[in-house]
Design a binder for these strands. Sequence first.
DNA 1: TGGGTAGGTTACTAGTGGTAGCCATCGCTG
DNA 2: CAGCGATGGCTACCACTAGTAACCTACCCA
Lengths: 222, 222
Amino acid sequence: MAAKELTAQLAAFSHGRVPRDLRRKQVLSEAFDLFIERGFPGASMDELARRVGVTKPVIYDLVGSKEQLFREVMAVVQEELTASIATAVAVEADLPSRLRAGILAFLRFTHQRRRGWSALLSMESGAGSAEVNAIRRQQAALVAALIAEGAGGAPDPRTLEALAQAVNGAVEFVALWWQAHPELTAESLADLLSELLAPGLVAIAKASTAKRTTPKPRRRAT
Amino acid sequence: MAAKELTAQLAAFSHGRVPRDLRRKQVLSEAFDLFIERGFPGASMDELARRVGVTKPVIYDLVGSKEQLFREVMAVVQEELTASIATAVAVEADLPSRLRAGILAFLRFTHQRRRGWSALLSMESGAGSAEVNAIRRQQAALVAALIAEGAGGAPDPRTLEALAQAVNGAVEFVALWWQAHPELTAESLADLLSELLAPGLVAIAKASTAKRTTPKPRRRAT
DNA sequence: TGGGTAGGTTACTAGTGGTAGCCATCGCTG
DNA sequence: CAGCGATGGCTACCACTAGTAACCTACCCA
C-alpha cells in the first residue's frame, strides 16, 4: 500500500537524518508490523528502534510511550473497521438485514486482517486495554444505534447499551472462534448469528414500543 | 476461609524453614491476591517473594514459572465458576429456563468475585492467554451441552460450538459492561439476555430437529 | 562566518522473569 | 552422641524491559 511510497521517500535520505514527519510515519508502520508479529507485550521498543534503524530515544521523542504508540497504531484499525461496518449496514433496510450485514462485515474484516485483529486483542487490559475498550465502546455504540433506529425508537438507554454489548460479544467471540475453524464461511456464520440474535432483538424492540403505546406491566421471562 | 488456618499453620514455623507443601500453599494464596491486585503483567515475582517472606529462587522452585503459577491459581476460579453454573442449570427443566439460570449464575459469580474475574481477563493472551482460553473453552462446552440437551438433539457439532461461543460472548461482554453500570440487577440482565438469546436458540433447535424429521431445504435469514 | 535547530547518539536507571551455585539446619542412622 | 544426607533457603548474577538525561553534529539561513 502506502508502504512502498514510504520506503521510496525514505530512500531519498539514505544518509540518515530523515525529516521528522516521515520518520514518524516509518515508526508507526514498523510498529504496526511489530505489534502484529509479537503482540503488545512481546513487542520491544528496542527491536522497534533497531528495525527503524535508529536509537530508542528517537522513538520515544516521536511517540511518547509504548502505550501511546499502540493506541495510535490501532486507532487506524478501529477506523477502518467502523467504516467497513457502517457502509455495510447502510445499504440494508430492516433490522434483521442490517444486523446480518453488519455481522458479515465484521466477520470479513476480522478474518481478512486476522493477524492484526488478534494482535489488537492480545492485550485486553493492563497496559493498552484502554484502547481496546475504546474500540469496543465505539463498536457497541454503533450496534446500539443500529438497534435503536432499526427498532423504531429504543427501549431505555441502559437496556440498549446492554443489548449492544451482548450482540457485540456474541459476534466477537464467534469471530475469534472462527479463526480456529476456518472451514466455515463468513456467510454461514453471519446467518447463524442473525438467526440467533434477530428474533430476540425484534421481540424486545416490539415489546418496548408496545409498552410506550399501552403501558401494560411487562412480563418477565421465567 | 482456609487462609486463617494457613497462617495459623505457618505461625508454628516462626523460625523460617516451612515444609514444602505448606510453603507452596502459601505461595499460591499470596499469588492469588497479588494477581487480583495488580493483574498478570503488573504482578511481579519479586514482590510475591517479598510477601511470602522468602527469596525468588524458592518461588521458582515451587511453581516453575509465572505462567504456570497463574494457571494453577486461576484453575480454581474456573472450577468454581463451572460448578456454580452447572448446579444452577441442573434444577431447571426447559431450555429457556436453563439458559436464564446459567446466565444468572454467571453474572452473580463474576459480580461477586469481580476483582478476581477482571484479573483473570487482564491477560487474554501473550503469556497466560492459554489459561483464559481454556476456561472459555470449558465454558463454551458447558453451554454447548446445555443447548444440545435442551434442544432435544443438536444441530451439527460445528453449529453447536459456534452457538455456544456466541452465547458465551454475549454473556461475558454484558458481565464486563455491568461492572461499569452496577445500578442494574443481575436478575434484570439475566432476563434481558435470555429474552435476547432464547427465541433464536429455540428456533434454531426446532429447525434442526425439523430438518432431521422432514428434510426440507432450510430457509436463511435474508 | 556564524549561529540555531532538527535529528540522533551514548550511557544510564530501575525493574523484570529466571537461574547457578552455595550454605545451613533438620531428622535419621550408626 | 557423631555424622551424614536431604530439605529449605540464600546471594549474586543473567539478559532483557520501558524510559530518560545529556550530549553531539550536520545542515540551513541570516
